[in-house]
Amino acid sequence: MEVRTIKVFTTVDNINLHTQVVDMSMTYGQQFGPTYLDGADVTKIKPHNSHEGKTFYVLPNDDTLRVEAFEYYHTTDPSFLGRYMSALNHTKKWKYPQVNGLTSIKWADNNCYLATALLTLQQIELKFNPPALQDAYYRARAGEAANFCALILAYCNKTVGELGDVRETMSYLFQHANLDSCKRVLNVVCKTCGQQQTTLKGVEAVMYMGTLSYEQFKKGVQIPCTCGKQATKYLVQQESPFVMMSAPPAQYELKHGTFTCASEYTGNYQCGHYKHITSKETLYCIDGALLTKSSEYKGPITDVFYKENSYTTTIK
């Protein structure tokens, strides 16, 4: 009895394709271990004539594949690729409408935090270190965002349907971005203890939790000093293409032309909904596939993004 075979390709990165001759009487799992086709788990399936010449994702289970996976995804987590594939199996079914010149995501599976993050990423200057993220990001900007969303979920250790947080998501993504040249110098002034300067680099240099107003941050924000008295913390120097200011959701007025974009969060910790506000020729609110415009805006804002380049204080 002759062994019926077909020729397929296996890959971990969709760049390096490895030619395989597979036995049609055995499952993919018996031949390769966990195997995925377009995100779908085909591990328990036997090869079919229609699979001839198709590319299958496999887990990096030998040295060659491990090197290829690390170079593309910059992670050695053995569960990463499987999590990416199972997320992709959902995100490829989502709709990605162009809204006001940006790629958004039609609401499904509690994905409003991903839509808000995706919209924000198209408006701030950011370059990702893992080629996987950078490639998928370019495709997302062009309207094909399924891979990018699935990668975000995998890097953030999230599953489809789980509630997510924009600030946490951005923080994970910033860790995989090139923020080497970003720098922030802060000064804390206390009447009792004097003053202390701190220099922050990388992710810490672009994120701040405690106030939404970048102007206020430049002037000074009140913080408790270690001595128990009130101290003032203010920005001395900022070198970065953008800054992200966050605070627990509270009524906040966004003035046209003073910011790049913002995240609105309605609801409580267990259950809520994100919308995205962007400042173009007027203010726009993007909620999944829905767009509304207004000249002014007041609502429960939790993150505001500002364009920056270089700032030095005039406070002496």
Rank of each mutant, 00 (worst) to 15 (best):
G33L: 05
T192G: 13
S310T: 08
G288L: 00
L133P: 03
I277C: 01
G210Q: 02
M245E: 00
L173Q: 00
L179A: 04
F148D: 01
K233Y: 07
Y274P: 00
I301F: 00
C112G: 01
T169G: 00
C149M: 12
E204Y: 12
E296C: 12
G164S: 05
A140Q: 02
G272W: 00
A108E: 15
I286R: 00
Y269M: 10
N157V: 05
V236K: 07
T159A: 15
G194P: 08
T266C: 08
E52P: 10
T116M: 04
A40H: 13
V99S: 06
V8A: 14
W107F: 06
Q222I: 10
Y138Q: 10
C261V: 02
S310M: 15
T76G: 10
Y306A: 01
V42G: 06
K307R: 14
Q196V: 11
D62L: 11
L121F: 11
F148R: 02
V188D: 05
P78M: 08
S213M: 02
E253D: 08
S263F: 02
G299M: 01
F217A: 09
R66T: 13
E281M: 00
H48L: 14
E253F: 09
Q123I: 04
K183G: 04
D287Y: 00
A40M: 12
T5K: 08
K229T: 10
Y113I: 04
V206A: 03
K219F: 07
A177F: 02
Q122G: 03
S294F: 14
T258E: 15
P47Q: 04
I315N: 15
V8E: 05
A145M: 04
L212V: 14
N147M: 14
A117N: 01
Y36S: 06
A177E: 02
L59F: 15
K95M: 15
C149I: 09
A154D: 01
Q270E: 12
T258R: 10
T278K: 00
V236S: 06
Y96A: 02
C285M: 10
T55H: 15
F80C: 03
K307W: 06
A231H: 01
F80V: 04
V42R: 07
G228F: 04
T35G: 07
A136R: 03
C261R: 00
R139C: 11
C190Q: 04
S86T: 11
R83W: 05
D41W: 06
L59W: 15
N49D: 13
L121V: 13
D77H: 06
K44E: 14
C193V: 02
A132D: 02
T282R: 08
E239P: 01
L212G: 01
C271M: 14
L133E: 02
E264V: 08
M244W: 02
S50L: 11
I286D: 02
H176N: 08
I301G: 00
E296F: 13
M85P: 05
F9A: 07
L119S: 04
E215M: 06
Y155C: 04
Q237D: 06
P241N: 11
I315Y: 11
T91H: 03
N157W: 06
A132M: 05
V12I: 10
M24A: 15
N89C: 14
A108R: 15
F242M: 01
H90Q: 13
Y72W: 08
A247N: 08
E264K: 01
S310C: 10
F242I: 01
V166S: 05
L119F: 02
S181F: 15
R167P: 02
Q270R: 12
K7P: 09
C225R: 01
G164H: 02
V160P: 08
T91Y: 03
V206N: 00
D165L: 01
H51L: 06
Y265T: 00
I6S: 07
S246Q: 00
Y311A: 06
P47A: 12
E144D: 13
S86C: 13
K54R: 13
S279Y: 03
C149L: 09
T199V: 14
C190N: 00
H90N: 07
P78D: 15
G202W: 02
K127Q: 11
C227V: 01
Q251V: 11
G29M: 12
C149Q: 01
V42C: 14
C225M: 01
I105C: 03
V22A: 15
E125N: 14
T312G: 09
N100A: 11
C285L: 12
C190M: 02
K275P: 00
E52G: 10
Q20G: 12
Y28S: 04
Y284Q: 07
K233R: 11
I15W: 08
L114D: 03
A108W: 05
C190E: 01
N187V: 14
A145R: 03
C149E: 03
S295F: 11
R167V: 01
N61D: 08
M170F: 09
G161R: 06
S171E: 14
S294L: 12
T211C: 13
I15N: 09
Q222M: 15
K183N: 06
Y297K: 03
D63Q: 11
Y36W: 14
G53W: 11
T313G: 14
V22R: 04
D109R: 04
I6Q: 12
K106T: 14
L186C: 15
P241L: 06
T120I: 13
Q216C: 12
V166M: 09
S79R: 12
A146C: 10
P130W: 02
I152F: 03
K44T: 12
E125V: 06
N49K: 15
L212C: 10
W107S: 05
V188I: 12
P130Q: 03
K229E: 12
T76Y: 07
Y269R: 15
V42A: 11
T199N: 07
T266H: 08
R184W: 02
A250H: 02
Q270M: 08
N100Q: 10
E2T: 15
K106A: 06
L254G: 00
S104W: 02
Y172K: 14
V67L: 14
T258P: 00
F128G: 03
M85Q: 10
H48P: 10
Y36H: 13
F174T: 02
Q251L: 15
S104T: 07
K127V: 09
R167D: 01
N61R: 10
Y172I: 15
L65N: 14
D303A: 00
A145E: 03
S86H: 05
